[in-house]
């Protein structure tokens, strides 16, 4: 396997030679068949991506008041969203959360992948499966389990702190919820990222390492100077996925909210806020605007990120 750029695959160019009319007819027929293969996806794409987006965009441009009825309001909903303290606080939270979470997750999954790549023991293979296991567990279940572990009544923390005569911190109250959620999400996803990096590491031709060792490189040097740069495409892919996923943070806070004693508010993340706005307050126009505004935030963050990583030539080039 080669290491071409992360997204676009190189385009094969066929030399242009004049074609006879039968060749041209065959080419047209092939092109039509190509479209046929893509058609089912095209239909799904139009119906479940383009149509909802277009519809929501339309909705988000209207307001619905009790007295005034539905009326066209241009960007009033967006102006409201980007000045709404609830939405802005939610965006602030997911951005800060990403900035803390993603480096921890990446360091952990890259570290484990490098260690696993260097070991061949039975225990290493066992650990690889165990660390990956949370990926097979739905985020809802993961959140419920950690909620139990954090719980002062069910969990081991209370007993642990009880031994030294201390009151255990409740990891979902307003002061600790940030760290509490970082732990849940790291546990849930680090193994998946680790497996992707590990698979990329296993794809490297080992003779490169031999060459480096003969030149006197240590294991650390081989790992940092050879392995990490060679899997930079995998790292970039994971970083973008982690960023997109974290900015849309919903499941864990939604599941843990009832037991958080107010540590998780209904406007905790933008998605949770959009959900509350739509389903508790039935403000679908404003909820559409929040969804769209979040989409805009995600796009901006991803592009800032892709731009920043492209400029630094040494890492993730």
């Amino acid at each position: 396997m080669t290491s071409a750029p992360a997204i676009a695959s190189p385009r094969r160019r066929t030399p242009r030679v004049p074609l006879s009319s039968t060749q041209r007819a065959a080419q047209r027929r092939r092109a039509a068949i190509g479209w046929l293969f893509i058609a089912p996806f095209g239909v799904v794409f139009l119906l479940f991506l383009v149509a909802p987006l277009a519809y929501a965009l339309g909705l988000s441009l209207f307001t619905k008041g009790l007295a005034t009825g539905t009326e066209f309001a241009w960007f009033a909903n967006y102006i409201q969203a980007f000045t709404d303290p609830s939405f802005l606080r939610g965006v602030g939270f997911v951005v800060t959360f990403s900035l803390v979470l993603i480096p921890i997750q990446m360091a952990l999954s890259l570290g484990v992948a490098l260690v696993l790549d260097a070991l061949t023991s039975r225990f290493a293979r066992f650990s690889r499966l165990v660390i990956f296991l949370p990926y097979a567990i739905p985020a809802v279940i993961g959140a419920i389990m950690w909620g139990f572990l954090y719980s002062p009544t069910f969990g081991p923390l209370g007993q642990l702190f009880g031994l030294i005569g201390q009151q255990a911190p409740f990891l979902l109250d307003a002061d600790h919820v940030f760290g509490g959620l970082i732990n849940v999400v790291t546990w849930q996803w680090a193994g998946y990222y680790m497996i992707i990096i590990y698979a990329a590491l296993q794809g490297i031709d080992p003779s490169i390492y031999e060459a480096a060792r003969i030149d006197g490189a240590s294991s650390w040097q081989v790992a940092l100077r050879i392995k990490v740069p060679l899997v930079s495409n995998a790292l970039l892919l994971i970083l973008v996925f982690a960023l997109i996923g974290t900015l849309q943070f919903f499941t864990e806070p939604a599941v843990l909210r009832p037991i958080s004693n107010g540590g998780i508010t209904p406007d905790f993340t933008p998605n949770l806020y959009a959900y509350t706005t739509a389903f508790s307050y039935a403000q679908f126009n404003y909820a559409s605007a929040i969804s769209f505004a979040l989409g805009i935030v995600v796009f901006i963050c991803v592009y800032i990120f892709l731009f920043a990583t492209r400029k630094r030539g040494s890492f993730l080039s």
Binding site: L49, P52, Y55, A56, Q248, V298
Partner: peptide, 25 residues
């Protein structure tokens, strides 16, 4: 190439942002 570029762009559309619009539709 145009449709494939569109598809790659759509990988970055936050899927949960689609949930409420799809619900309304």
């Amino acid at each position: 190439n145009l449709s494939f570029a569109l598809l790659l762009g759509s990988v970055m559309v936050p899927l949960t942002a689609l949930v409420i619009p799809t619900f309304i539709l």
